[in-house]
């Protein structure tokens, strides 16, 4: 297993290089370092000298991929791409184009993201499983069909409406919680109630429907019928038989998501003014801050790969028949 993990981690390296190359190409096909300088320098009195100065200061005064002026390996190493990428692999994200230290920013902004994403994730799973179990009890009745229809209807509402509606009703009309914001010291929960609630409710449709399917799959297995024939009560069947067995697909399904929780939710964070990584990304896109975008893509990829590895491991833990090779 250890060997397996090491191999997977090594396999991640070419993927990360590919990711980096792609981001780089995408960004610089349309943006020249001059463009970046102009957008960072503002709109008044932007002289060519100032642009050159900015490029030099931020390390964009070199060729992008191939340095024809240099000799030997430095043809490839004395370039923007090499200089900016190599440091990423050492987890040195450098400074954003506006001059802030990205590592510091990421490590401080990670926590608000988690503070929203983790409760949403856990409460969401709890609520969805509870609802799904209730619905499963009424399988093949009108109630079940009605519930499934409701799930689909909930799924069909744009996420934006949940946020806008939630904010409008709970925060603005009923004044139960702050409209937005995040104060780490003191009563953080007041700021988290609404985003978490919105996140959970928005996820009910898809989530509960998925769990329902999983449970039904289990409910149709032979062992459940046997249990029922033996005269086990419905509750016993549900909690002793169906739930534990359905845990395997549930577990493997959600484990892949855990690392990405760090990245936060773009929409929730920007609507609720939570200074997490999601809004960090959005700001970076809007201000075309390449250093941040590059770093976030890198972190996102690592977390994704981590999620895949974790999933594989959780398979072996949940189901001893699976062996990693």
């Amino acid at each position: 297993m250890f060997a397996y993990i090491v191999r997977r981690l090594l396999y991640a390296i070419p993927i990360l290089i590919g990711v980096n190359l792609l981001t780089f190409t995408l960004f610089f096909v349309v943006n020249t370092p001059d463009d970046m300088a102009v957008s960072q320098l503002g709109e008044k009195y932007v002289t060519p000298e100032a642009i050159e100065n900015w490029k030099k200061k931020n390390g964009y005064d070199k060729p992008l991929f191939v340095n024809a002026d240099a000799s030997g390996t430095s043809q490839l190493t004395d370039t923007i791409f090499f200089n900016k990428s190599v440091r990423l692999f050492a987890f040195d994200f450098g400074r954003s184009e506006s001059g802030r230290d990205i590592t510091t920013d990421v490590s401080t902004r990670m926590w608000p993201s988690l503070a929203v994403a983790l409760p949403t994730f856990i409460v969401g799973i709890g609520v969805n499983i509870t609802i799904a179990l209730m619905v499963v009890m009424f399988h093949a009745t009108r109630l079940d069909r009605g519930a499934v229809f409701l799930f689909v209807a909930l799924m069909s509402i744009s996420y934006l409406f949940y946020i806008i509606g939630g904010q409008y009703l709970v925060a603005k009309s009923w004044r139960l919680v702050p409209v937005s914001g995040f104060v780490p010291e003191g009563q953080v929960w007041r700021f988290l109630v609404l985003p978490v609630m919105v996140g959970v409710i928005a996820g009910i449709g898809a989530g509960a429907r998925w769990y329902r399917t999983l449970f039904l799959e289990e409910a149709n297995q032979d062992y459940v019928r046997t249990a029922r024939a033996k005269g086990c009560s419905e509750l016993t069947i549900l909690f002793k038989h169906i739930l534990p067995n359905a845990m395997i697909p549930i577990l493997t399904g959600v484990v892949v998501l855990i690392p990405t929780l760090f990245m936060g939710s773009l929409l929730i964070e920007s609507f609720f003014g939570i200074p997490g990584l999601g809004s960090y990304m959005l700001d970076a896109i809007n201000s075309q801050d390449f250093a941040i975008v590059r770093s976030m893509v890198f972190i996102g990829s690592i977390l994704y790969i981590l999620g895949l590895i974790l999933t594989d491991i959780s398979y072996t833990l949940a189901d001893p028949r699976v062996r990693l090779s």
Partner: peptide, 12 residues
């Protein structure tokens, strides 16, 4: 327990 309005968004 909490003092003041529930929806106060400012740190004390």
């Amino acid at each position: 327990c909490s003092e003041g309005p529930w929806n106060d968004p400012n740190p004390s």
